[in-house]
Amino acid sequence: MELLFVIIAVLAVLGVYLSWTAGRLDRRHARIDAARAVLDAEYLRRSGAVLELASSGLMDPATSVILADAASRARTAGDDERDQAESDLTAVLTAVMDDPDDVSELRADADAATALDELAMACQRAAHARRFHNELVRGAVRLRRKALVRWLRLAGYAPMPETVELDDRVPKGLDATRE
């Protein structure tokens, strides 16, 4: 009779643990979805700030066209091409605004200074959102790799989350303007 109570207690503890782990995994997936939505919003904000700067008339026409084109491609890219388009936008921003001296000339105009501050903030927020998203993904992947989670399929049919790997560094010229 004692053995039966021990078995029931062990099964109850195991059931509670498995239920808790499944709930934790489900909450982690929901947080990843929310973090991805925030990341997409931050990338839209960044491309919007680039488009605003490009259309302001404060930069030379060739630079404005290049910035506007890269920002437009980043905004209209499909899910499969989004990471590459965002990396391309970062490359264009870096090429245009990596030199703090060039950016400081633009800052002489009050409108340009405001636009540059908004762009710098948007770039930093996008980089932080990507790091936060990737940290959540790494935590979920660690949890999903546990033996009991795999054997009992506690993740259900949810796809394995993936990190977002792209170049989103803040150009040195923009980073210097924030100091």
Score class of each variant (00 low, 15 high):
Ile66Phe: 02
Val170Met: 10
Ala68Val: 12
Leu166Lys: 01
Ala62Asp: 06
Ser56Asn: 12
Met59Val: 14
Arg142Ser: 14
Ile7Asp: 06
Tyr43Met: 05
Leu106Ser: 07
Leu119Met: 07
Ala70Thr: 08
Asp69Phe: 11
Glu105Trp: 07
Val16Cys: 08
Gly57Asp: 07
Thr90Glu: 13
Arg36Gln: 00
Ala176Gly: 07
Gly48Met: 01
Glu105Leu: 15
Glu81Pro: 01
Asp109Lys: 06
Ala74Ser: 15
Ala9Val: 09
Ile66Met: 13
Arg130Gln: 07
Val137Asn: 00
Phe132Thr: 11
Glu118Ile: 09
Asp167Val: 02
Ala49Pro: 03
Ala34Ser: 07
Ala22Lys: 14
Leu152Pro: 03
Tyr17Leu: 10
Asp98Gln: 09
Ile66Asp: 15
Glu162Tyr: 01
Thr114Ala: 13
Ala147Tyr: 12
Arg144Asn: 03
Asp167Thr: 08
Ala122Val: 00
Glu162Lys: 11
Arg125Asp: 15
Ala41Lys: 00
Ala37Ser: 13
Arg142Thr: 01
Arg46Thr: 07
Asp117Asn: 14
Ile32Glu: 06
Val103Gly: 09
Leu3Arg: 06
Glu179Pro: 06
Thr63Gln: 12
Ala122Trp: 06
Ala85Asn: 03
Gly78Ser: 11
Gln124Ser: 15
Pro171Trp: 10
Leu14Tyr: 10
Asp60Val: 04
Ser56Cys: 11
